[in-house]
Design a protein around this nucleic acid. Sequence first.
DNA 1: TCGCAAATGCAATATATTTGCATCAATTGG
DNA 2: CCAATTGATGCAAATATATTGCATTTGCGA
Lengths: 143, 143
Amino acid sequence: MRTASETFRRLGHPATRGREEILRILVESSIPLSPREIRERIPAPRPDPSTVYRNLSLMVSIGLVRSVALHERSRRYEAATDGAHRHRAVCRLCGRIESFQPKRCDLSRLESDIRGSLGFDVTDHSLEFFGACAECGEKRAKR
Amino acid sequence: MRTASETFRRLGHPATRGREEILRILVESSIPLSPREIRERIPAPRPDPSTVYRNLSLMVSIGLVRSVALHERSRRYEAATDGAHRHRAVCRLCGRIESFQPKRCDLSRLESDIRGSLGFDVTDHSLEFFGACAECGEKRAKR
DNA sequence: TCGCAAATGCAATATATTTGCATCAATTGG
DNA sequence: CCAATTGATGCAAATATATTGCATTTGCGA
């Protein structure tokens, strides 16, 4: 098994407790987390917020973590484990977020259209759905 | 023709110069803009930034404007004109953004999957592609 | 274990967004 | 067209988010 420490070292970066914790937390979370949420989940002694930001941006640049843009003030992050691709459903009413793995993510057609018409070389994409989650939908129906 | 002023009044909100300018700027722009960019494009006397924020959030809530989440620090906004749906391609290298209208946006299948598995009532979605634009792609190839 | 390169904490700074409050402007009724 | 009222605006301050410089500490390979 490849430990987090090994992963960091293999990529040429010292493994530190903070880094391992961040990665562990993201891997364990089913939804993308904000830097603040991540830090709050690290057991004391907690690293400084600036350290969390620095490490997140390092981890994004070496491909261990992806940033996720929802319609919020802060960005969120998720583990890029193995490269599994995920989409998200966000409830406009309560803010609940669910991540899911598409059965088959067939946007290849769209991606080649884009290459053809805009000349863009697409490497990845981000797809989010917005609406009302089951719970909020019910509440709304009762009224 | 329906003027911006009429649109606001019809929705029960006074039409002010700032509001009309914001809407005009968003309608004229081919890509989503940040609050700062929007404000910079308003001819003097410019409204205060807080006014721009307040108006953007009002316009989002009454459906005239949509917010767009790219992987940036600030949110962006676009006119929700008639409801035309758009996707975006973002260059990771130079930051260039292009908006385009999909030939046919067939995510209805995915949306019904989501309703089925998560119980989410999806009202809209957001799809962004990331990669290298034509220009940056060429530059990179030359090296 | 030693030494270096890199990471961390801390404080300061930058940027983005929100809010309270006094003032001003757009609408509506006269 | 004018006055009254409701709501918008400017300004300043507060808050949230993110970044950076620098002195100190830590991880890692020799």
